[in-house]
């Protein structure tokens, strides 16, 4: 077990180095010039060149990436071009807010998605099923900012039940978390529905009924633990898509997390921050997948980690 985790962590480190390379290449070939952003419109060509030299951006790609990687391996993600602060510091100060929103959002999407999926599977083929699947289709296809703004308008502006934006209390957390939950629930409800329908056909469900168990016990005690397995694997994969949602939702709700940091950095071509946030997100995905794989054998004893 310890060996397995160690091996996975070594793999993860290699994946992160790979991601840093790909992101670096993408930012390098990007037509936007970070130096222009720093220097401003009125700067002379000479100033621009000076700044470029100071930041080492005049060096060839290999040298730039080599320097970045060498620093990264020592835990140094560089300094923000515009905020003149260590990227590590910026990210660490905003990470708790994002983690809080992330956990609340994942819980929301699971509760919504799984219950919708189970309900639809049990009502299979009837009106309730079709209604739920239509709802899930809407949530899957709705753009993130539309859902955010809609909820914000109805529940914060019109009804005034929750604060319009910001961070601090549980009330602040509700709307952004529910937004993320609604956005993610469609995938989970569809997956849970088909998984549940398949499991309900299994021989052991018939055995459970033949024992004289009540319908509820058959569903919760026998079907659910089996049906939830593919969903658990999905959670790990989903974190990537989820991080994309977080960037938008944090910006709309003024949630001071790394998503908002990334959004600002992208607009101003602040490369060290973009690199840093990308790597932290990638780390979250890698850890999410590892956790999903570690949880799976707890649910299904047939799964062995090796």
């Amino acid at each position: 077990m310890a060996g397995y985790i160690l091996r996975r962590l070594v793999q993860s480190a290699l994946i992160l180095v790979g991601i840093s390379f790909v992101t670096f290449v993408l930012l390098y070939v990007l037509p936007a010039d970070p130096v222009r952003q720093i220097a401003g419109r009125s700067a002379t060509a000479e100033t621009v060149e000076n700044i470029r030299r100071q930041l080492g951006l005049d060096q060839p790609f290999v040298v730039q990436y080599g320097r970045y990687l060498a620093a990264l391996l020592q835990g140094d993600m560089g300094r923000s071009y515009l905020q003149k602060t260590e990227v590590t510091e910026l990210i660490l100060s905003r990470l708790p807010a994002t983690l809080q929103l992330m956990s609340a959002g994942i819980v929301a999407e699971l509760v919504l998605g799984l219950s919708m999926g189970v309900a639809a599977a049990l009502m299979r083929g009837r009106a309730g099923d079709q209604l739920l699947m239509m709802a899930s289709f809407v949530t899957v296809s709705a753009p993130q900012f539309v859902v955010s703004l809609l909820l914000l308008y109805v529940f914060a502006v019109k009804l005034g039940w929750f604060p319009i934006g910001g961070y601090g209390t549980a009330a602040h957390l509700v709307l952004p978390a529910v937004t993320l939950g609604i956005l993610g629930s469609g995938w989970y409800s569809r997956m849970m529905r088909s998984s549940m329908i398949e499991v309900l056909r299994a021989d052991y469900i018939r055995t459970a009924r033949a024992k004289g168990l009540s319908g509820l016990r058959v569903v919760l005690g026998h079907a659910l633990p089996n049906a939830i397995l593919p969903v658990v694997a999905m959670i790990g994969i989903d974190i990537g898509i989820f991080m994309g949602g977080i960037v938008v939702v944090e910006s709309v709700f003024g949630w001071p997390g790394i998503g908002q940091l990334a959004w600002q950095a992208i607009q101003r071509v602040d490369i060290p921050i973009i690199m840093g946030v990308t790597l932290v997100s990638a780390l979250a995905i890698v850890i999410g997948n590892l956790l999903a794989d570690l949880v799976a054998p707890l649910i299904d004893p047939r799964i062995r980690l090796r």
Partner: peptide, 8 residues
């Protein structure tokens, strides 16, 4: 093989 619940 399939008549017993695999996770219990």
């Amino acid at each position: 093989m399939t008549s017993l619940n695999p996770v219990l």
